[in-house]
Design a protein around this nucleic acid. Sequence first.
DNA 1: CTGTTAGCGCCTTCAA
DNA 2: TTGAAGGCGCTAACAG
Lengths: 338, 338
Amino acid sequence: MATISDVARLAGVSISTVSYAVTGTRPISEKTRKRIETAMNDLGYAPNALARGLKSKRSRIIALSFPSQTANIDLTGLEYILAASNHAQELDYHLLLWTTEVDAPADLRKLINQNLVEGVLVLQVKLQDQRIKVLQEIGIPFAMIGRTAKVEGLDFVGTDYDQCARVAVKHLFDLGHRRIGFVNQPQEIVDTGLGVAVRVQAALTRATKKVGMSVKTLFCENSHEAGKEAFRNLMELDPNITAVICLNEQCAPGIMAGALDHGWRIPADFSVVSILMASQVAQMSTPAMTTVSASAEEICRSGVEMLIRRLDEVTSAPVQQLVPGELVVRGTSGPARL
Amino acid sequence: MATISDVARLAGVSISTVSYAVTGTRPISEKTRKRIETAMNDLGYAPNALARGLKSKRSRIIALSFPSQTANIDLTGLEYILAASNHAQELDYHLLLWTTEVDAPADLRKLINQNLVEGVLVLQVKLQDQRIKVLQEIGIPFAMIGRTAKVEGLDFVGTDYDQCARVAVKHLFDLGHRRIGFVNQPQEIVDTGLGVAVRVQAALTRATKKVGMSVKTLFCENSHEAGKEAFRNLMELDPNITAVICLNEQCAPGIMAGALDHGWRIPADFSVVSILMASQVAQMSTPAMTTVSASAEEICRSGVEMLIRRLDEVTSAPVQQLVPGELVVRGTSGPARL
DNA sequence: CTGTTAGCGCCTTCAA
DNA sequence: TTGAAGGCGCTAACAG
């Protein structure tokens, strides 16, 4: 593999001139620049990332922390990962996928101490997240997709859950629904304090109270069967419920199946609205699911940019951004039954 | 951040002694080793990955090529990514996620020329895959999850599609089905030569012919609606079809919906078997889907190990492995209607 | 506008 | 069993 001195020799210039030509940090005469360029092309030269990183203290590698065990393994998660990766590459950064658990701070510390990554993009953020403490202690730049309980001074971009809740509730309210259910993630996930699960629940409580709606909340395992059971449980809690808001990709179709078993048609007798569900998933159910979601693309793009900007401007003010969700009415929501 | 000379100074030894203590490539007296260890702990020392990689020519970074546009964006894909990442980390390697397109060989070349990654794990392999040519030309070690048309001399691990097809066909045959449909990925995906789509189709043709079954093949877009339409089209092709084998996570539920619309119950009147569907997804449909799949965990573990072994033993014989699928009978397959 | 040179942090040969 | 020293490929002063 060609090195910078190969290029210098072939172009008949010094090593530093090649370096300056590559980085553009110093004016080069048109003539020598041309010579250097052809030499680079002839040799198929590309700067050695390791050497460059070692010298410049800029590896151009960011880590994406996505805990694979505690995370929601759903298509929405995949959307986030791919969007972050694509955007990092557009900005000429490499993305290191880091899937160890939230509760393994030693591993994270070890990763960072290696000086390989310049910054960390934190996904699946919990209200109390051990990773954040580690990152702060070490003093490495990071940005969160989502947010911890205390966000003072931290960079993050996330979905505006309050707005999403209001939009979802208003949609159902306008359709005449007054008594609804909310089906959240599994109890153990909520108990670990996964930000989205806790916050959406709180936001829905506020939003329904404001318009005078009744809401019964349930946790639900990530499976179809659990969704069916959740529906039955809701009916026991309040048989007059006419709609459900759901924050659980896997169980939403189960809820619909439960309603069908109950003898109800969707959306004639019962409505389902999913919050934060990828459109791909929304289209998998029968009928396709009405959703309120923010764009993973937009959120991750923003998060990656935020992080990379932070690498240069360590001291500038924190950037905190909430992206509003959008209501997409598909086939699972309609007027409340009488 | 502490460096090796900090450790050496604190422990009162030379730099090289610390290095040997860390790498273990030379005997160190118990006494000095202890001193070095405490010094490392006190300083929170970890070797600088960039410097180490530069010197040793081993970055301990592998790339995972997962083209995000042409790929199937489904949960099965996510399973593969996470499994590969987890296993790489277990083996003390970093995993770089690389999501640019298959048809952008220049980008791939650029990545590799940077000398950052030691090897590449190639996912979503097509029969004619430009990435493979690039990797071979450059001479960087790689392994495929899946396989190209010509695999001579190449490392790969994949699912045994022939066996999967036989198992799925036998399952339906034993239940009395004689006329079935096969619903593949979208036409354009098959046309690009995605290995799995082409090979499963061929394998099913062989397997059905062997037992004297009739099979009508259809392509289908990745959506629920397309699945419903696929069902209608199948009925036009052959109204006597009693079952479908499906290779399309997104449209499988649509096929079931189509059957319901047609007035058929599942599995009493119509059976659906999915090939290569993650169990999580299988459990999302109503009823849960009968599947024939190999374990993503096992395949990726094998692929990562294969690649990392290849980094050491450049010349040893290629490893080629096909993992058999397993039939899991859930709720969508039953005796053929009369 | 261009060249010389001192490291970045580490591994490893050579010497003791 | 230990140390000294060169160099991996590159960047960025410093010096013309």
